[in-house]
Design a protein around this nucleic acid. Structure first.
Length: 274
DNA sequence: CAACGGACCTGCCTGC
DNA sequence: TGCAGGCAGGTCCGTT
């Protein structure tokens, strides 16, 4: 479900409810996520304060005096602010309860998400250590991509979805950014010119910024901390639109499979040859 | 190194 | 109506 815009929507949404609050307890209903929730976390968390609510790639980090809670939403994960006594729903795997009564509830149908603890600086954690640059940072630019891709025969879309190359870009926004850039998703990454990387990097940034401004994309079930959907799906140019007319040229949008993921593109706006 | 397939899960939709 | 198969916003891990 969530790519960077949805995770950022979630982070920004929960921040005002939990920043500066003190954990009273952690209730774990189902510990079997991508990795099991460490049982010690229930003992360790009470009494600690949320000093910051940060994001790195698709991870949400809750900073405390003693370490960081690392949250990943996987494909179907979600964080909601619940009110006291609110009915527990299917797949509500964990509740963070604060001393003022605020409840942060983690729901994840497919259990690909994770809830971890690290006492070391989070950037040194095994899961964050090798992550590439943030797409909205200066270091994510054409020169970086051009150099990184010089020996990569794999499709450019797969490079954009490789978290060691850049974080936060998933299946929707990779297709959307390449459409905006006019680059065919299946082109070998090493074949793109510096000018094409210029366009691609710029489009990744602008698409992500627009999606964040719209509260993310809701295809099936993404909702923010209040249970409200995002609105970026109304601006999707190609994702999920196979057989429909390109909004720019009218040609029919095509769908191919790259790295076991559905990929969408306009055959006219995104020609195979540069 | 890079590339690929399989794995982890639940639920929904399609077609027989 | 049931059931098999495919698909879904992620990403780690083992093998070539």
């Amino acid at each position: 479900m969530p790519e960077l815009p949805e995770v950022e929507t979630c982070r920004a949404g929960i921040e005002p409810y939990i920043l500066g609050k003190r954990f009273r307890r952690l209730l774990i209903r189902e510990a079997r996520l991508r990795w099991p929730i460490a049982p010690e976390l229930s003992l360790l968390l009470p009494g600690l304060c949320v000093l910051a609510v940060k994001r790195r790639g698709k991870y949400i980090l809750l900073e405390t005096e003693a370490g960081h809670v690392l949250l990943h939403l996987g494909m179907s994960g979600n964080l909601r602010i619940a009110t006291a006594g609110q009915q527990v729903r299917k797949h509500d795997h964990a509740d963070f309860e604060f001393t003022d009564g605020t409840l942060l509830r983690f729901n994840d149908q497919r259990r690909f998400g994770s809830l971890l603890w690290t006492a070391e600086p989070p950037e040194e954690h095994a899961l964050l250590r090798d992550l590439g640059p943030e797409p909205l940072s200066e270091s994510f630019n054409a020169a970086y991509l051009h150099h990184l891709a010089r020996r990569r025969a794999a499709a450019v879309k797969l490079l954009l979805m490789d978290s060691r190359a850049v974080v936060g870009v998933g299946n929707i926004y990779a297709s959307e950014a390449l459409f905006a850039a006019g680059v065919h998703p299946g082109r070998p990454a090493r074949d793109l010119t510096l000018a094409e990387w210029e366009s691609t990097a710029g489009c990744v940034k602008s698409i992500l910024r627009q999606a964040i401004a719209q509260g993310g994309t809701t295809l099936r079930d993404f909702v923010n901390e209040q249970g409200k959907p995002g609105y970026f799906q109304q601006q999707l140019g190609v994702y999920g639109r196979a057989g429909e007319a390109c909004r720019r040229c009218g040609a029919l949008i095509e769908q191919v499979r790259l790295g076991q993921r559905s990929s969408f593109y306009c055959p006219v706006c995104q020609p195979v040859a540069a």
